Amino acid sequence: MTTLFISDLHLSPSHPNITDCFARFMREEAAHADALYVLGDLFDFWIGDDDRSEFANQIRYEFQRLTSNGVPCYFTRGNRDFLVGKHFARETGVTLLTDETAIDLYGTKAVILHGDTLCTEDLNYLKFRQTVHQPWLQWLFNRIPMTIKTKIVKKIQTDIRSDKQNKSLDIMDVTQSEVEAVMDRHQVSLMIHGHTHRPNIHTFRSCDQTKTRIVLGDWYTQGSVLVFNQEGFTLEKRPFIFS
């Protein structure tokens, strides 16, 4: 049996090929796993649990199908789906996790997170993150009519794209000192995260230990899945199928 990890799918109605790959993965692969972990940015932007569009309901259905068949699913919110809330969890059966969560993987202790909080040099983003995570602001946003929320989200997405064009790649990557601080805090030698869209397996020495940081890939041109079992792990690709 295996435990599966995915992140940064950025699902949206405008990219049905990614959604199709996700649905196929959920039905043909995740359905046979010990557990599935979604480490943020499942959606290109989750506008709120009151989204009842055909697309949103399709994603809900895939999670309902998985969890109702006995496969536990855990969800860490990212910078694009921080508005995923208790209603979504209740309707789909997923378990919402905190920003950082220590888990046991077949005897190996690991810390999992989306990864945005590791990018401590991206000051503009961290300021944005602090603002949008204010409970009162989320409470207010969730009570705005859907048409207005859609306009606000489009403006945010435009601002995000513009901001990225003016940033260096180094600023948008993790800060090694923060990686080590998080791992030390949770007393682990393994970290799994997404966010940076730079799939890789990094090893380094810290506190006289060899430690590993696994970075999940995005789903822009193909699926990306971390497959973890008792024998070890592999970071694998899943092709899109075009009709």
Rank of each mutant, 00 (worst) to 15 (best):
H15M: 15
K154D: 12
D51W: 04
A33Q: 04
D44I: 10
V227E: 14
A30H: 10
L123V: 13
V94D: 02
I47T: 08
Y220F: 15
V225C: 02
G107W: 00
G70E: 02
T92S: 02
P72E: 08
P72R: 01
F75L: 02
V174W: 03
M183F: 03
T158H: 14
R213N: 09
A56P: 04
H133N: 12
M191V: 06
A23Y: 14
P13Y: 03
I160N: 13
I59T: 02
Q130S: 15
T196F: 04
Q209K: 11
Q187F: 10
N69W: 10
Y125F: 03
Y125K: 06
R90H: 11
W46N: 06
D122F: 00
Y74G: 07
F128E: 00
H114A: 00
F22N: 07
I171Q: 01
T131M: 14
V188R: 06
K167H: 07
T101M: 10
E29D: 15
M146W: 06
M146Y: 05
H197K: 03
D81R: 09
I112K: 07
R129G: 07
S177D: 13
A30K: 04
F43P: 12
Q187R: 12
Q230L: 11
N57C: 14
I171A: 04
V174R: 02
L118P: 05
D163F: 11
Q230A: 14
I6F: 00
T210V: 11
S189Q: 12
D116M: 03
I112H: 06
L4H: 05
T147C: 08
T234Q: 13
K155N: 13
R185L: 06
W219Y: 07
Y37I: 04
F242N: 14
G40P: 09
F82V: 00
T203C: 10
M1L: 12
H133E: 10
F55I: 02
A35G: 08
D170P: 10
G232Y: 01
D34L: 13
S168A: 09
A181T: 10
F22K: 04
R129F: 04
A181P: 02
I59S: 05
A35Y: 05
T3L: 05
S177E: 11
R27N: 10
Y125A: 02
Q230N: 15
F88W: 03
V111F: 03
S206E: 10
L190V: 05
L190D: 08
L226R: 01
E62K: 08
M172D: 07
I160D: 14
V215M: 02
L4N: 00
A33E: 05
F22H: 09
L36A: 00
Q130L: 12
L36W: 01
T210N: 10
K164W: 10
A33D: 04
I201R: 07
